[in-house]
Design a protein around this nucleic acid. Structure first.
Lengths: 249, 249
DNA sequence: CGAGGGGTTGACGCCGATCAAAGCTGGTGG
DNA sequence: CCACCAGCTTTGATCGGCGTCAACCCCTCG
């Protein structure tokens, strides 16, 4: 309730100037392409595309695209975390999905939709490739393998959404917060096995509970040494302890 | 809690004998194929498939497939409602998705998975086509259009899951039940604009609340004439009234 | 007609939403 | 380098909603 968008339409121009435009993407030389949407597509393919693929950087809290707007781009996340958000008419703010490197967002444009279904917001610094729809279409025709990549991406997001419903959508607040931490650690770990602690508002929006409740539970976990601050927003956790609380004994 | 599976492994043999096997499907003559996975695929294609597509009937409450089992079939729903269910280790029973005619289930087998992710159970009488994976593969190669049909199906299910998270996963019990009724009416209406009332346990499993709470809210809605029994499990509802309660003003 | 499985209703206690206020902390500018 | 400030986290107090246990009712089906 009473949630205000990080950056609204009114300031969209400001967003654009905030984005560091990094210029033409070099898919042929992309060292993480095996993780991305274009895995398996030969380097030569990118010479033939109709419209170029650009590479952008978004600062924490900035909007990547807004629900309902009609755009012509899919985004492939290279680095950072993106939240897909939704605000109900009565102001209720909910996060529908949290996505990291290797995931493509805005895929709904390939099917039924003529506009994005949710608003995508960068959580930390996000690094992504902006792919025009016609380019995808062209590559799909040339390399049917891309259809499978798209389907795989959709299937992964469906699995994520289902897991969300099952693990984060029911039971007590404490159990849900414990599940959320396990979820963050499992899906978006850093190289040292730590995870990025989100702010209270975002965790509340993921779990459908009040921010104060989140805070109380997190504070309790810290006191019980189930959570340890490593550096900045990075935390380590007691896996067994939290699994116990989450009801996975 | 304490939920018992409708039909467990132990009685799987019984299930099979319960299924009315209706024999070879006639995709070439299927009058609802334009709604199904194979929309747009020419009749002639079905002469070339490696393994036949069969047509089955499932009685209410029977298991179509079970989570974790390794099978080789996708199912395309022709008639009836199917629930995808999940039971947590501690016995918590949750419904992840409700699917009707035109939807394909078990698509996870096409990607990462080598087993079904959820258990699919018939809610009312369900009529579906059982499609072997190799048949799908073959048709995909011959008709890349099928890739798009699969992706569209996944996208629709993703939309459904997201909607689930947003509308059914938060706020008060009364608001959620109201949303659920609107959801049932919108997504699975019968020809007269009625909807199928689920049993309390299923509604509770969809919303993540107690069955008693569901019962209380539904009973209240009936008293307020927001719900009217039409026939059997079919009900009509006061759309404006429920939208008001749901917070859609 | 009888048994059984759901649905309904009541009583009670706890969890968590809400309102309010104080404590922290990272970032900014002097 | 320090002081300050805005926004976030933490904590408290209160109260309503809903989970839980239990009893009873009703409808269906054998």
């Amino acid at each position: 309730m009473g949630y205000t968008m990080p950056m609204t339409n009114a300031t969209e121009h400001t967003i654009c100037t905030n984005i560091k435009w990094l210029g033409r993407a070099h898919c042929g030389k992309c060292h993480i392409r095996h993780l991305m949407l274009f895995a398996g597509i030969p380097d030569s393919a990118f010479d033939k595309v109709l419209q170029p693929i650009d590479h952008h950087l978004f600062q924490p809290g900035t909007v990547i695209y807004e629900a309902g707007t009609q755009k012509q781009f899919i985004y492939s996340i290279r680095r950072g975390l993106v939240k897909l958000t939704h605000i109900t008419e009565d102001g209720t703010y909910r996060i529908v999905r949290l996505l990291g490197p290797g995931t493509a967002i805005g895929l709904e444009l390939l099917d039924d939709a003529d506009s994005y279904h949710y608003t995508a917001v960068a959580i930390d610094q996000v690094d992504l490739c902006k792919i025009p729809i016609p380019t995808i279409r062209k590559l799909e025709n040339l390399y049917p393998l891309l259809y499978e990549r798209v389907a795989l991406n959709l299937q992964e997001q469906l699995d994520l959404a289902d897991q969300w419903i099952v693990t984060l959508g029911a039971r007590t607040a404490k159990q849900r917060v414990a599940q959320l931490i396990l979820f963050l650690h499992k899906n978006y770990p850093d190289k040292n096995g730590n995870f990025i602690m989100l702010n209270g508002e975002d965790m509340a929006a993921m779990l459908g509970i009040a921010t104060e409740t989140v805070s109380r539970v997190i504070a309790e976990f810290k006191r019980q040494k189930l959570l340890l601050k490593t550096h900045g927003k990075l935390y380590s956790h007691d896996d067994a302890g939290l699994r116990e609380i989450a009801g996975l004994g």
